[in-house]
């Protein structure tokens, strides 16, 4: 069953001669327990697509559903709640709060309301252990390695037990070995917890590890195949 459903979604920026069609009539489903790698050159629209799914942008046309709910026209507060409770973001590069420890970076989501803080503390410790971060849990973010920071980001994205994970270039600043560790940790969490996940990547080797590969060019889906087919 699809957790994320995009139906004929388009997104344009600017008007008239300056109009740019970043995403054009994209239809895409992402199922529970599935990691979809979104591949394409810079400017192809993959990050815009991720932002649309995360309610960071509103589509110009089309419909977006998450767990069956139409989020297309959510207003300000509904968008904030949606991002807080139902989506987990992992951004490119360093996206930790630099003066907080690894554990505090996970617990910060509890300050945004709508959660039992005691349960969040237990969950933070559980996630830190699962992602092999217990040893560095009390280190401030700036003292963590790139791989540790990305694993903390994955843990933070899972803190509210969202149904959808949106991951933007998680290995861009890592070497191959660290990148594999981070992506494998992500795959393991998605499969084990039955989440849906879109992972934007430039790296073919990382994309091959996903369950499905979606290739995007000039805002349109060029190819959509399982990673098994590409082998």
């Amino acid at each position: 069953m699809a957790i994320l459903e995009l139906r004929d979604v388009s997104k344009s920026f600017g008007q008239g001669a300056r109009r740019v069609d970043a995403v054009r009539e994209v239809t895409l489903d992402v199922d529970r327990g599935e990691v979809v790698a979104l591949e394409g050159p810079s400017g192809s629209g993959k990050t815009t697509l991720l932002a649309l799914a995360g309610a960071l942008l509103t589509p110009t046309a089309g419909e977006i559903r998450v767990d069956g709910d139409d989020i297309t026209n959510y207003g300000g507060q509904a968008r904030t709640r949606y991002r807080r409770d139902r989506v987990g973001f992992v951004f490119q590069g360093s996206n930790m709060v630099p003066f907080l420890t690894a554990r505090e970076n996970l617990l910060i989501v509890g300050q945004f309301g709508g959660a039992d803080r005691t349960a969040l503390r237990l969950r933070a410790d559980e996630l830190l252990e699962q992602l092999d971060l217990t040893a560095v849990r009390d280190q401030v973010a700036t003292s963590l390695s790139g791989g540790e920071r990305q694993r903390v980001a994955i843990a933070r994205a899972l803190m509210r037990d969202p149904s959808l994970l949106l991951v933007d270039e998680p290995t861009a600043s890592l070497n191959f070995e660290l990148g594999v560790l981070v992506v494998d940790a992500l795959l393991s969490e998605v499969h084990q917890r039955q989440k849906a996940c879109i992972m934007v990547t430039h790296d073919d080797r990382m994309a091959q590890r996903a369950d499905r590969l979606v290739e995007i060019r000039d805002g349109r889906i060029l190819a959509d195949r399982s990673s098994f087919e590409t082998l």
């Binding site: 995360g54 973001f89 951004f91 300050q111 945004f112 933070r156």
Partner: peptide, 15 residues
């Protein structure tokens, strides 16, 4: 950028 990230992960503006 940090505030943008916090908003993206669900921090309300008034908070």
């Amino acid at each position: 950028s940090l505030l943008g990230i916090l908003k993206a992960i669900g921090a309300p503006g008034p908070y």
